[in-house]
């Protein structure tokens, strides 16, 4: 049954991707991309990657789509007719695709437990991590403990992306007079539903944050979900109201505080006589140390991701607001 679902979903994914090529209406392209992300999240669940599916559904279908729509509001929704011929790209793509498909014939069979990927490192993670780290979710153990240094790098990359976006687009506070213009004032249904849903989304984000050690979830997903709640607030009630809840300056402090919190756990473990990010040394018991370390660094990840996603949204939507006033 799982194989059948896999076949159908993958076929739908390929059809969606092929449809994106030929559409000229960019709004439809971006909506299709949202569907594409949701379909890929479903496929990830089917392939046992629940944490990845969670991230793809909240990031790919949520934040990416919102940011692309924000860009579209500034650049126009129609793609102009293509002037140069599409013959050469088609030839290049067909040749590359044929070569890659020829390459897949040597790939190991799908799902075979004896595949080379499953022979090295992975057995150790699967057998030892519940004992060494003490968490049932192996993805969190590997992410936060075994590969903690790698994850610190990823968080720094996300932080660097914020700096890049802010150096390109500035966030400007609007005056009181503009405040009455933005938001969806006349949509009462949206107002009522948003007010009901936003607290639930934030509650869910906190659950994902702190339950990530035991089930699917963790700092990356929780940060994105919490940012989605505030993005919904900004869209429905207007950007100035969102600034009143969390200002841009405060978000910059949060983004850097998350990275510093993560790095300070590493320094603290060095102070205690271990290596950088060696949680065993944090508390008297190694397992307790692992627990404290993972909870704190996941919190750091969650804070940084939340602040970065929300400030990137602020940067895009304050550009849109300014061009509307012009």
């Amino acid at each position: 049954m799982a194989e059948l679902i896999n076949l159908v979903l993958l076929a739908m994914l390929a059809l969606t991707a092929l449809r994106i090529i030929f559409l000229k209406d960019l709004f439809a392209v971006i909506m299709l991309f949202g569907i594409f992300s949701f379909l890929s999240a479903l496929i990830f669940i089917n392939l046992d990657a629940v944490d990845v599916a969670f991230t793809e559904a909240s990031v790919g279908a949520g934040i990416s789509t919102v940011l692309m729509l924000g860009t579209l509001a500034l650049t126009g929704r129609k793609e102009k007719a293509n002037s140069h011929s599409s013959f050469l790209p088609l030839v290049v793509v067909c040749i590359t695709g044929a070569a890659l498909i020829y390459g897949t014939l040597d790939m190991p069979d799908f799902g075979d437990p004896d595949n080379p990927v499953h022979q090295h490192v992975a057995p150790r993670y699967i057998e030892e991590s519940p004992k060494e780290v003490g968490l049932p979710n192996m993805v969190t153990s590997v992410l936060a403990s075994y590969r903690g240094f790698d994850t610190l790098g990823e968080v720094v990359v996300v932080f660097a992306a914020l700096i890049a976006v802010l150096s390109l687009l500035s966030i400007r506070k609007e005056t009181e007079q503009d405040a009455s213009e933005s938001g969806l004032k006349s949509h009462h249904v949206l107002h009522v539903v948003a007010k009901l849903v936003i607290p639930l989304i934030i509650l869910f984000a906190l659950y994902v944050q702190f339950h990530g050690d035991f089930g699917p979830g963790g700092g990356f997903q929780a940060g994105v979900i919490a940012a989605a709640a505030l993005i919904l607030y900004a869209l429905v009630f207007g950007l100035p109201n969102a600034f009143a809840v969390i200002g841009a300056k405060f978000l910059y402090c949060m983004a850097s505080a998350g990275v510093l919190l993560y790095a300070s756990v590493g320094l603290f473990s060095m102070y205690k006589g271990g290596n950088f990010l060696d949680y065993n040394k944090i508390a008297a018991e190694p397992l307790a140390g692992q627990h404290y370390g993972i909870i704190i660094i996941e919190l750091g990840v969650g804070i940084t991701v939340f602040a970065v996603m929300l400030s990137i949204f602020y940067a895009f939507s304050s550009q849109t607001a300014r061009s509307n006033i012009k």
């Binding site: 944490d51 990845v52 991230t55 793809e56 990031v59 790919g60 934040i63 990416s64 940011l67 692309m68 924000g70 860009t71 993805v139 992410l143 790698d150 994850t151 990823e154 990359v157 996300v158 992306a161 914020l162 890049a164 976006v165 390109l168 963790g218 990356f220 994105v224 991701v305 970065v308 996603m309 990137i312 895009f316």
Partner: peptide, 15 residues
């Protein structure tokens, strides 16, 4: 998992 989050951050820079 981490590549997805880094991916959206770089997409934002592109946009």
């Amino acid at each position: 998992l981490t590549a997805i989050v880094v991916g959206v951050a770089t997409t934002a820079v592109g946009l």
